[in-house]
Design a protein around this nucleic acid. Structure first.
Length: 299
DNA sequence: GATTGCGGAATCTAACGGGA
DNA sequence: TCCCGTTAGATTCCGCAATC
């Protein structure tokens, strides 16, 4: 909840729908402040909405504040160095490199060049940018030739064309230094990062699909979470390749969060395909990646 | 070992202020 | 009007002790 007004009134918060609409307007204006008339019309429209009519009158000043704050936030975010990891308060086992975890980085695809890219590429310029890619930038992951696993790309450093075969890019993996840089085949070993899905979409997931749902507050919402519908915000990544960390570490983390695993696993997802799933990677709270055989959950 | 409850830190976000 | 923060309440998240 935002800061309440100084006159002692109740704290105000824009609804998701309103935020989406204002976001759209902001994008249409290329992150420039819309004219006053537009802000006034938005305020009036929000005030007349079913949720607010007769209860709350959205002021022009509130809409104006939102645009100011959002523009400032966007600028602050984009001024950060690409690939920089998000520093959170959550503890993580430093011995376990965390990749394939969504991180706030936007990796640009490389145009012909020899120097590292610092700018990001709008999704609209990237062929094949599909749903959930309405945000400003594409994000990518690349397959490491060292262990065959897919990791988030922080930056594309350079590219080259070989006489034989496909073009290659040199990538810096998110959370790793220059010593981990690799040349990878663009056609075969670079792809869009996993797509965010609502939990209700889990039933459509097939073995081998790469999905990304959202995190859930287990304590408040999931004490008896069994079904997919109940697990509204679940963080699960279903992936086939093994990840780069040893299995003992995975077991160590598993012991710590296995309760969450049992509650987080949506049953429709687990049953989809039955025994055909070979392994499931659960990404829990940014830092814990667990590999298990889902069939064990039912034994 | 599993579960629960609590406290505190971190984060989010609307409101606000000062300066250009 | 805009930029650049800062403020402050609400919310989220995690660690840890207590309990089962």
């Amino acid at each position: 909840m935002g800061r309440p007004p100084s006159n002692g009134g109740p704290a105000f918060r824009f609804t998701t729908t309103e935020v989406e609409e204002m976001d759209t307007v902001l994008q249409e204006h290329h992150n420039q402040m819309p004219v006053r008339e537009i802000l006034v019309s938005l305020a009036e429209k929000f005030s007349e909405s079913a949720d607010r009519k007769g209860k709350i009158v959205v002021q022009f000043k509130q809409v104006w504040n939102w645009f100011q704050n959002r523009r400032y936030a966007i600028r602050a975010k984009s001024s950060k160095v690409p690939g920089k990891l998000n520093i959170t308060s959550m503890p993580r086992d430093d011995s376990v490199p965390v990749r394939n975890v969504p991180q706030p980085v936007a990796a640009p695809m490389p145009p012909p060049m020899t120097a590292p890219i610092s700018a990001a590429m709008p999704a609209s310029t990237v062929p094949g940018a599909g749903r959930h890619m309405s945000e400003s930038y594409m994000e990518f992951e690349a397959k490491s030739s060292r262990d065959g696993a897919w990791y988030d790309v922080a930056t594309f450093l350079a590219h080259r064309y070989l006489e034989m075969g496909d073009p290659e890019v040199e990538v810096r993996f998110a959370g790793f230094g220059p010593e981990e840089d690799e040349w990878v085949n663009i056609r075969k070993h670079v792809r869009q990062r996993s797509l965010p899905c609502e939990a209700s979409e889990c039933v459509a997931v097939l073995p081998g699909d790469l999905i990304l749902c959202f995190q859930v507050d287990i304590r408040k919402n999931c004490k008896s979470m069994i079904t997919c519908k109940q697990s509204l915000r679940v963080y699960i990544s279903l992936i086939k390749p093994f990840l780069r960390f040893n299995f003992l570490n995975a077991l160590k983390i598993f012991r710590k969060v296995k309760i969450r695993l049992f509650t987080l696993m949506p049953m429709p997802l687990m049953r989809k395909g039955g025994g055909m799933m070979y392994e499931v990677v659960v990404v829990d709270f940014w830092c814990a990646m667990i590999m298990i055989n889902p069939r064990k959950l039912y034994l």
